[in-house]
Design a protein around this nucleic acid. Structure first.
Lengths: 122, 122
DNA sequence: ACTTTAACTTGCAAAATGCAAGTTAGTGCG
DNA sequence: CGCACTAACTTGCATTTTGCAAGTTAAAGT
């Protein structure tokens, strides 16, 4: 029933910045969404579903709500002449680039043996 | 019933290194365990429970098993004269340092407004 | 031998996830 | 204008994971 839907409902487990980062981003989907936004700059709701991981729409909605409320992602106005709205990274979200880079580098070198098909994107 | 308990049971969602890293480390506890090992070098099972986040023992056991099977953490032999065994980071685990550093730096600068008590550790 | 305690395991309630199927409201077209 | 279309969500519900508390096991100390 209760799910974390905005910044106010986050329970900070400690004062440690690593644990606190994980209180926000420590799940399987949030950084995948952020990655998509790095890759594409801007993305509409349904475009997120096109990524190979296949996020389901309820999770996507919940994560976008949380990431927005934390200020990692923002909703941009639809172009006039289209109803498509879109999401993009804020400066706070853009600051996650090095986290993604380091995680990606680590995975490429340390997971390749167990997951040979892993590729590089950055 | 089924939980991810070792490397063989991981389902890789895609070939993306970021998503793959999250397939392994994308939860609230794995990197907290890794952080503890960076901070203390070596840690026994019950010492993990002393950290302020308060991991419960069943989750701890499951994560240690997974992290071991992936080769991020290893079990070291107890000292003779003590039954205490201990865990430590492998070279693969040590390579996560920059991921933790970047995550910690990001959190300090971008979460402080919502979580003023956040401190610095690296 | 007897107690202690580290290292787990188990049981079960609560929460999160995943899938499929709605719902709602702008748009495009005739 | 009116109706089909579809993007952007929401809802329902089964499955999986989490979290808490209590139990188990076996080595160590006394």
């Amino acid at each position: 029933m209760s799910m974390v839907i905005d910044a106010n409902s986050i329970e900070w487990r400690s004062v440690c910045p690593i644990a606190s980062g994980l209180d926000v981003l420590g799940d399987k989907w949030s950084l995948v969404i952020v990655r998509d936004l790095f890759e594409h700059g801007t993305r509409t709701y349904s475009e997120f579903g096109e990524s190979p991981e296949g996020i389901s729409t309820n999770i996507l909605a919940a994560r976008l709500k949380l990431l927005s409320s934390i200020g990692i992602v923002e909703h941009v106005e639809p172009d006039r002449a289209s109803r498509n709205n879109a999401y993009q990274l804020t400066s706070s979200g853009l600051a996650l680039r090095s986290v993604l880079e380091e995680l990606g580098k680590w995975s490429q070198t340390h997971l390749k043996a167990m997951h040979p098909d892993i590729v590089s994107i950055f």
